[in-house]
Lab assay of single mutants.
Amino acid sequence: PQEEYKKRAKKALKKGDEDTAREALKRAGLSPDQAEEFIRRFL
């Protein structure tokens, strides 16, 4: 589910792994723009 992928993305970002985070967010159904926004907000 979407929440699970978002959790995964946050874990990846904590490790500084933005590529894995983007992949997880893409799987969560976010557009690339939404994924970038999510990452920017998190960092």
Rank of each mutant, 00 (worst) to 15 (best):
P1R: 14
P1H: 13
P1W: 15
P1I: 14
P1S: 14
Q2N: 11
Q2V: 12
Q2A: 13
Q2H: 11
E3Q: 08
E3V: 07
E3S: 08
E3H: 09
E3A: 10
E3P: 06
E3K: 09
E3M: 08
E3L: 08
E4W: 13
E4D: 12
E4L: 09
E4V: 08
E4H: 09
E4S: 08
E4F: 13
E4K: 10
Y5L: 12
Y5T: 03
Y5Q: 08
Y5K: 03
Y5G: 06
K6L: 15
K6G: 04
K6F: 15
K6I: 15
K6Y: 15
K6W: 14
K6P: 03
K7R: 13
K7D: 13
K7M: 10
K7N: 12
K7E: 15
R8P: 02
R8F: 12
R8W: 11
R8K: 13
R8G: 04
R8V: 14
R8Y: 11
R8E: 14
A9M: 02
A9G: 02
K10H: 10
K10V: 15
K10I: 15
K10G: 06
K10E: 15
K10D: 05
K10T: 13
K10R: 14
K10A: 13
K11R: 14
K11A: 15
K11L: 13
K11P: 01
K11E: 15
A12H: 05
A12I: 03
A12R: 03
L13G: 01
L13Y: 02
K14I: 14
K14W: 11
K14Q: 14
K14L: 15
K14V: 13
K14G: 09
K15M: 14
K15V: 13
K15G: 11
K15F: 10
K15H: 13
K15Q: 14
K15E: 15
G16N: 05
G16Y: 04
G16P: 02
G16L: 04
G16R: 05
G16F: 04
G16D: 04
G16S: 04
G16A: 04
D17F: 05
D17K: 05
D17A: 05
D17P: 02
D17Y: 04
D17V: 02
D17E: 06
D17R: 06
E18F: 15
E18T: 14
E18L: 15
E18Y: 15
E18H: 13
E18N: 08
E18S: 10
E18P: 11
E18K: 13
D19W: 11
D19P: 11
D19S: 12
D19T: 13
T20R: 08
T20V: 08
T20P: 02
T20S: 12
T20W: 06
T20F: 07
T20E: 13
A21P: 00
A21K: 01
A21L: 02
A21E: 00
A21M: 02
A21G: 03
A21R: 00
A21I: 02
A21S: 02
A21D: 00
A21Q: 00
R22N: 03
R22H: 05
R22V: 04
R22P: 00
R22W: 06
R22T: 03
R22G: 02
R22K: 06
E23G: 05
E23P: 00
E23H: 07
E23V: 08
E23R: 09
A24M: 15
A24D: 09
A24C: 14
A24R: 03
A24I: 15
A24H: 15
A24V: 13
A24Y: 15
L25F: 02
L25Q: 00
L25M: 03
L25H: 00
L25E: 00
K26I: 12
K26P: 01
K26S: 11
K26E: 09
K26M: 12
K26D: 06
K26H: 12
K26Y: 13
R27Y: 09
R27H: 12
R27S: 11
R27T: 08
R27Q: 14
R27K: 13
R27M: 15
R27N: 12
R27A: 14
A28S: 05
A28H: 03
A28I: 04
A28W: 04
A28P: 00
A28C: 05
A28N: 02
A28F: 04
G29M: 03
G29A: 03
G29S: 03
G29D: 03
G29W: 02
G29C: 03
L30Y: 11
L30A: 03
L30D: 00
L30P: 00
L30E: 01
L30I: 04
L30S: 01
L30F: 12
L30M: 12
S31Y: 04
S31H: 06
S31V: 03
S31L: 07
S31G: 06
P32A: 12
P32C: 08
P32E: 12
P32L: 11
D33P: 07
D33T: 11
D33Y: 08
D33A: 13
D33V: 12
D33Q: 13
D33L: 11
D33W: 09
D33H: 09
Q34H: 05
Q34M: 08
A35S: 07
A35P: 00
A35M: 12
A35E: 05
A35G: 03
E36P: 00
E36W: 05
E36C: 06
E36K: 05
E36Q: 07
E36S: 07
E36A: 08
E36H: 05
E36M: 06
E37R: 07
E37A: 11
E37I: 07
E37F: 05
E37Q: 08
E37L: 07
F38D: 00
F38H: 01
F38G: 00
I39H: 01
I39L: 04
I39Q: 00
R40I: 08
R40F: 09
R40S: 07
R40T: 07
R40Q: 10
R41P: 01
R41F: 08
R41Y: 09
R41A: 12
R41K: 12
R41G: 07
R41V: 08
R41D: 09
F42G: 03
F42V: 09
F42W: 12
F42K: 02
F42T: 07
F42S: 05
L43Y: 15
L43F: 12
L43R: 13
L43P: 04
